[in-house]
Nucleic acid binder design. Structure first.
Lengths: 233, 233, 233, 233
DNA sequence: TATGAATGAGATTTCATTCAT
DNA sequence: CATGAATGAAATCTCATTCAT
């Protein structure tokens, strides 16, 4: 269940997002070679898994496929993950963290006028689309694979989307406070709508034949719609 | 792969949508009682299936569950559908048709000014949200179940979304032609962005505790964003 | 946990034993052909399983082996039994029921003097040894297989042995009441010791090259020991 | 297969038992510290294994559990034992030796009358029950674990029981020769029956809440039955 | 036409054993 | 010597699909 709504403006988004994104991404003490080895092996497995999941979907991907993708015996995987679902969860959390980071890396209070905010939105959009291009499987996992696992996992994605929407809401609050955004906005739903648009773009960039160009166009489209509306002036 | 793009403005959307929605395989021979009987049995099965799919997801729904949900033996289902996937496809197509109908029922050339178009958009949004409320399983199927079957089915949903975006694009062309919408719009992506927003709203209405109120708020939010933008004036 | 001890003399043993032996042996209404069919199929499976279990032991027996032993697909077995353990439980309960029946078929209050009781004990012993000879797998299941499943199953066997010991105790009480047995006997432990002897004999009959002769000799040995002791007179 | 039968009376039991007990594979080179070290490590492993086997049973006990029980890496175990089965065999042989020693420590020709033999039997019974109390895992291994390994191991236990029965038979022969026991006894089966009783007692002592008291009672019960029979006099 | 008994492909998971470090 | 990472054989169990009744 997604419970958190309407974030307090001005709060640190980055910290909260880390928590929301999941708990798996342990980055343990940088000296323990044993733990480090384990972690790097988990990453290897996750790298193999994300490819196989993206290609076949969660249910049709077999542990054996993941193992052979990384050139290991399938029993090996069970030394590093409890079961198949745990792999998917790890992969998803890693992906969501990367995705949400793009948004949360921008400070919500930085903009002081519409133009600055517009530039910021473009930066965020472009960052997202760049990520889609750099790691195409990431989009698959977030948009498709997670939904194939179970409802808990679907809710995890929904939670991440909500978290992004909450951060976006902070931007809106910032703009309203500084008088360059419309104070009558229903901030959370507007934020969610914006996120919906942006992720619709991300999905289309992910699927496009020429994702680079598609990303550029979507950046422009979204900012245009947000700041100018569609009406002729 | 999504192939259809940039619909010719002014064409009849409703007709083309039927084709795009998929191979609905309705055998509408309105006199042959045998065929009619078969069709009504298929509907029964689809009614049972949509409930079971919505509740358990495609993979975890068993043929036996669907059969017992409709009070029949599970062997019976195979007299009306080739296999499990065919049921899902039938259910999905039926759902997509209902969904897209909401949009295509509105004539794309009816509006003559921004206010009329705004009213039209609100009507469409409200119609969509009403549908979500009236048939919650429909939202589950379109948003979640289809993605669990295979990539072909995912593309079918994507195709329907594209079709809706194309119709939306016709509205935009109409508005530009009649000088009340901004001629610089990237019409297809703007249309897709609008559809993305609206469906993000639909998803949240579908999940909301009080879907009625959520639908109202989302209607308002989307039209506000489209016609006014977010900037203070 | 075996809790019941020191049975009240004169009570009906047969009834209580049925309960102790387990709950699986459903013999449903003799007209319902569906239920009868199911039951006869379960018997078929149990017949196949007892052979395979006796030959390979519980852990090394595979469902596939049981299935092929009865000439069926291995999936079929799961239509009639929840899982492998359930088969073993069914088989064991069936076997324990047969075994305990031999003892409980004799009325505990029938004997009126030492000679009559001695004859009764010989009858019981011989009945038991006959059973071992007629169904050798039965001995395997009770003496060996059950112990390979888990502690709960071991306790089920122990419970049946205790039940037999309780019935035996009733015989002793009867003899003491009628003044032909030694009143100073520790009745339950003496009964358990007798049962221990008899089952040691059963095990050896089960393993003997010539079980018929071995059974005869054991009958004589046990009664001799019980009634005459070992001391020269 | 149980082959050894009807031991020659008067022979030294202790020596033969060593052979019967199995291939204990002790390398008794009492000076080579390397071999001694190896042997003490094997003992350590056996000590750990007997606990784990007693707790979980043979099949559900893992090498890893045994290793961690003794605080070693699981690879280490393979430096001292060929495989899992070899551990069980070692543990069993060690246990059987302790068990049979209780019986074979008593000289079979010591008694000269019924009263002396009765005292001797009580000593043996009490010794056995004391052992059960002192090392409860020993009972588990002999009564339960061995039967879970394979038929060969089961036969090893059976062989040890036979060996004990053979020694017991020597006592009987001694008593018959000295005229204080009934010459008409079927000596081997009577011996086996006595052993069966005694071990039934041992099993119950092993399982009892108050093993000390249970042991006392069983000693009395067994000797009473052997020497007095059950008939009132 | 309706049914459900039978089937077996196929996937996950465990853990004894090996062997390089 | 000791270790534990890697391995893969093997077994259970599920359920879509077939087909005789």
């Amino acid at each position: 269940m997604v419970t958190a709504h309407h974030a307090t403006p001005g709060a640190s988004a980055a910290i909260r997002l880390d928590a929301l994104t999941g708990s798996t991404a342990k980055k343990p003490a940088r000296r323990l070679s044993a733990a480090e080895l384990t972690e790097s092996r988990r990453e290897e497995i996750a790298d193999a898994a994300i490819k196989v999941f993206a290609l076949h979907g969660y249910r049709d991907a077999s542990i054996a496929q993941i193992a052979s993708q990384m050139g290991a015996g399938h029993g090996t995987i069970y030394r590093y993950f409890e079961n198949k679902r745990a792999i998917a969860e790890y992969v998803l959390n890693r992906s969501l963290l990367k995705l949400t980071s793009v948004v949360t890396d921008e400070p919500p209070e930085a903009s002081n006028n519409a133009a600055e905010y517009r530039a910021q939105v473009e930066r965020i959009g472009r960052g997202l689309y760049d990520l889609m291009i750099a790691e195409p499987e990431l989009g698959s996992v977030v948009f498709f694979v997670a939904g194939q696992v179970d409802s808990e996992m679907r809710e995890q994605v929904q939670g991440a989307f909500d978290a992004v929407a909450q951060v976006t809401e902070m931007y809106l609050h910032n703009g309203i406070k500084k008088d360059f955004l419309d104070p009558s906005l229903d901030t959370f739903r507007t934020a969610a709508a914006i996120v919906g648009m942006i992720f619709e773009g991300a999905r289309r960039v992910h699927l496009a034949d020429n994702p680079r160009a598609e990303g550029e166009s979507w950046s422009a489209t979204v900012t245009h719609l947000m700041f100018d509306g569609i009406v002729a002036r």
